[in-house]
Nucleic acid binder design. Structure first.
Lengths: 334, 334
DNA sequence: TTGTATGCGTTATCAT
DNA sequence: ATGATAACGCATACAA
């Protein structure tokens, strides 16, 4: 509970001098510097953050707004954000569960004067000009934005390309009836993936079947499909646990950790030179072939059989599944 | 960038009146109240958090110190913390990667003046009197403390009881050689689990075999065991993904979400009445029997066989595995 | 009901 | 090299 004034009194100097010592100003005699340090540690003095940032108008803190915290996807995003922030000596002010635009505004408003910049993962509903109001308060970086915001850096996922590669893979394996279990229609990721899915079908001259386009909710249970036939499955995001499924899930891999890391890098850049132009980075989404579409090594029947169980259990958080009915008449009973 | 003064000027009142309106003071005429509100929203005025908390000495923010952010365990803890905090209108200042005592001190110090209370999950090394220095700054709650701190609420996991139940289960199934893949020796969780493990052995009059007590690191790879025999496996923590393993993992279940939730509840209680006595809650750890120790329904052989694969892939974050060589001479080749 | 003035704990701009 | 002192943006006790 000691303030800078207490230290000054005890060290018999002015508070200005104490401040100089604490901030490592060179214009202090070695003698008093030592004395002040001793007194400060003796009183166990801790500077008051709010007071400090009131004068400096810097908080050394980054705000983070997420729609949710559930599951390995967000977990890794935060870890990436934290890692990058920490390497810049920045703390994290976290706030989640922002479904609507005015939630975002409210949360950002509560952060006014407490952060130097903000990372926002906008919710499905999209936040049209709401983000514009935020942007003129502090530097802003968007994570996977539904639509770009003027003068605002962003980093997003190559959803279209990822889904495209996934469906092409299934087609190459000989599948013809290919379904997509997607996210909500308004969701930016979902839209990109749907576009990739459709493009791949188009390129292969396969018909587009509305009944095979499911608008899920990115949850595990959302991945359930009522289907009694064997299917090949490919997921999206490659969260850690899917490789332990049986069979290991073939997925589109996205480096979620890096997603968060990059956002912070862009944010720091924007903070350091506010005049610099906004940058838009896109994280690659690459196909990782494991065994849920049939084993590469030839024991395809067993793998295909097993893949049915994976599907029945549902997918994973933030997971898109492109499914295909086997047209090779491989049928088994587990 | 509008301050309270700008609003006051534009509304032709004093800043005191603006402050009153913003904070919902009743002693304001309905007329001026409306006018101030209009001007404030017109100027898109956002109160400055640091300034506000400098005068009120309240921040509406909780600090959270964790040793790490990796995996489903911490993910759920944070989610629980966030959920409870949000229900109290509190924000979260997050900081992770605190291995040593002085890391904790440093992180807590950086939070001085920015938080109203602190939740700390102390690292393995333990933080003897370091936490004492923290405690006299703001209300403090410990998550799974290695050793209790005077006047400091805590919530921990019934590690001993959980491990005890797990080992008893294995013994009841007829296993005699039971190993434990644990965490670091200094870790509080690890110590409790080891005690429970040993007690169960003792009660069953089974010999204690030092070679079967492995000090792992709570990571997935740490769960690897070089063993060519079939084993039954039981994990600890019951993170979401283990039920999707094949066979589904029998584990000691801990409500990790609630762990975080409770910590915040205790913290809020301590914040509201600083004079109240410290409370120590213990979260139950109950055995959930799935199939990794043999199927309850009788197809034990197949399940035991499959369980070997689970072990070979390693356990999970924050997972203890009690493993047992089958003494029933059930041997299979996968 | 409203305004004035003081203080919250720092940093920074002046002097000295 | 050091010390007054004025901000920083706001809340509040006290006056009016």
């Amino acid at each position: 509970v000691a303030t800078i004034r207490d230290v000054a009194r005890a060290a018999e100097v002015s508070i200005a001098t104490v401040s100089r010592v604490l901030n490592g100003s060179p214009k202090v005699s070695e003698d008093t510097r030592r004395r002040v340090w001793e007194v400060a540690t003796g009183l166990d003095y801790w500077p008051h953050g709010a007071a400090r940032s009131l004068t400096t108008s810097r908080t050394h803190t980054l705000g983070v707004l997420l729609p949710d915290l559930f599951g390995e996807f967000f977990s890794e995003v935060i870890r990436g954000i934290d890692s990058a922030a920490r390497s810049h000596g920045l703390q994290l002010l976290l706030s989640s569960s922002h479904a609507e635009a005015r939630d975002v505004i409210a949360a950002a408003g509560a952060m006014r004067g407490r952060i130097d910049g903000l990372v926002v993962m906008a919710p499905d509903g999209g936040t049209p000009d709401a983000l514009e109001r935020v942007r003129q308060r502090f530097p802003l970086v968007l994570l996977n934005p539904r639509t770009p915001v003027e003068g605002c850096s962003s980093v997003s996922i190559a959803n279209l390309e990822g889904a495209h590669a996934a469906v092409r893979h299934l087609i190459a394996l000989g599948h013809q009836r290919i379904a997509i279990v997607n996210g909500p229609a308004g969701n930016a990721d979902a839209q990109g993936r749907l576009a990739g899915y459709r493009r791949a079908l188009r390129e292969a001259h396969l018909p587009r079947t509305p009944e095979l386009e499911f608008a899920g909710d990115f949850t595990e249970s959302g991945g359930y499909l009522e289907c009694a036939r064997d299917v090949a499955v490919v997921g999206f995001d490659d969260i850690a646990s899917v490789r332990y499924l049986d069979p290991p899930l073939t997925t589109v891999h996205v480096d979620t950790f890096e997603l968060g890391e990059r956002a912070v890098r862009l944010l720091v850049a924007a903070m350091e030179s506010p005049s610099s132009r906004a940058q838009h980075e896109v994280l690659p989404a690459t196909l990782v072939v494991r065994r849920s579409c049939g084993a590469p090594a030839g024991d395809g029947d067993a793998a295909t059989l097993a893949s049915r169980r994976v599907l029945a259990r549902g997918g994973d958080q933030k997971t898109m599944q492109a499914t295909a009915g086997s047209n090779n008449a491989r049928r088994h009973q587990s």
